[in-house]
């Protein structure tokens, strides 16, 4: 399924936002997730289903912030 993650198209096989974070090895507590321009409450990550064409923004804490490198 094709989804857009931080502006980049990716072909990824996951069911939920929680799965997506897990597949990218991202600790849910270090990121805020926007799905199609709506902020998703952290408690709903594992129940939020993804579909083809979704656009996801992963916003990391920064400023003493996140050391996670999405490009790895």
């Amino acid at each position: 399924m094709l989804i857009r993650i931080n502006g980049k198209q990716e072909d990824i096989q996951v069911a939920t936002l929680g799965d997506l974070l897990q597949s990218k090895n991202i600790e849910p507590q270090m990121v805020s997730v926007e799905l199609n321009n709506t902020m998703i409450d952290r408690t709903n990550l594992t129940t939020t289903l993804l579909k083809e064409g979704d656009s996801i923004e992963l916003l990391f804490f920064m400023g003493g912030g996140s050391g996670h490198d999405l490009r790895q």
């Binding site: 507590q29 270090m30 916003l59 804490f61 003493g64 912030g65 050391g67």
Partner: peptide, 19 residues
Amino acid sequence: RCIFPKLPPQGVVPSCQEA
């Protein structure tokens, strides 16, 4: 806080000093 409602738990996010 509209984006980050609360502080990240300690240790989850590295600091500039560490990273």
